[in-house]
Every structure is written in structure tokens, then in C-alpha cells.
């Protein structure tokens, strides 16, 4: 039951687009004692399921495809395959550390961006 509730909440965060991509890895490693690499693999499948569902809603609302986006997709795919291969024969502590650092950076960047938006909104009101 906990799995179901937690996965629903994390999927809502993924759909909202406020940086929920890593939460399922955190839940699996810190709460369910999964190994880092298997948590990453399971998170990818979880993200595909929740992300595709959210994508349908976004696509219905506006056209999101552009030349830049197609180029991004074409470039990221081989790089992703390379990264995924490397993770299989790396000490799991390295991706754990890397993910931790990435979360701190993205959390700070997101918080700074939001605070700036708050300040901008307040200045516009005054």
C-alpha cells in the first residue's frame, strides 16, 4: 500500500514538472533499501510511465515539437546509451554521489528561481 501511495505522489510531482525525476530513486534507495543501480533502472521505467501520461496532457494543450527539440533528442540518445553502459560497471557509490550533488544543485537553482519570481511579482504589485 505504501508503494502505491508514494508512487502516486511522486508521479504527480513528475507531471507538475517541479523536479520529481529523482524522487523514486531516493524512495527506493533510502526507504526500500534497493541497490543504487537497480533503483536507477526501476526509476527510469517509473518515469516513462508517469511522464508519458503527463505528456499526453501537455501535447493536447500546445504544440511542443520544434527543430531544436528534435535536434536535442537526436543528440541525447547516443549519449544516454553511453552513460547507461558506464553506470553498469562503475562503483555504485559514484552515481550515488553524483545524484546527490545533482539534487543539491537543482534544488538550489530551483529555489533561487522561485524566490526571484516571488520578488518580481511583489515588485510588479507595488
Amino acid at each position: 500500500m505504501t508503494d502505491i501511495i508514494v508512487s502516486f505522489i511522486i508521479a504527480v510531482i513528475v507531471g507538475l514538472g517541479i523536479g520529481g525525476g529523482g524522487f523514486f530513486v531516493i524512495y527506493l534507495t533510502l526507504c526500500m533499501n534497493y541497490g543504487q543501480i537497480i533503483a536507477q533502472g526501476t526509476n527510469l521505467l517509473f518515469f516513462l510511465v508517469s511522464g508519458i501520461s503527463a505528456l499526453f496532457i501537455h501535447i493536447r494543450r500546445k504544440s511542443v515539437l520544434s527543430r531544436e527539440l528534435l535536434f536535442i533528442i537526436a543528440v541525447t540518445l547516443p549519449a544516454t546509451a553511453l552513460g547507461a553502459h558506464i553506470s553498469d560497471f562503475t562503483d555504485p557509490k559514484i552515481p550515488t554521489f553524483f545524484l546527490g550533488a545533482l539534487l543539491i544543485i537543482s534544488g538550489i537553482a530551483s529555489a533561487v528561481r522561485t524566490v526571484k519570481a516571488f520578488i518580481k511579482e511583489k515588485n510588479e504589485k507595488n
Binding site: 511522486i10 508521479a11 496532457i57 553498469d88
Partner: peptide, 28 residues
């Protein structure tokens, strides 16, 4: 790639497939 290397828990995903789908739609 992770699946090929045996690094995905598909059994867990079977359990959370529906909440993950509904949650994604709700969030969007």
C-alpha cells in the same frame, strides 16, 4: 540498457503502474 543488464525491478513496477499513470495525468 538497464533492462538488458538486469537492473530493473519489473515486479515493483507492475504494482505501481496504475498510480504512476494516474499521478502523471493529475500532475500535468
Amino acid at each position: 540498457v538497464y533492462l538488458k543488464n538486469g537492473n530493473v525491478d519489473t515486479e515493483l513496477m507492475g504494482r505501481v503502474f496504475i498510480p504512476a499513470t494516474l499521478g502523471g495525468i493529475a500532475g500535468a
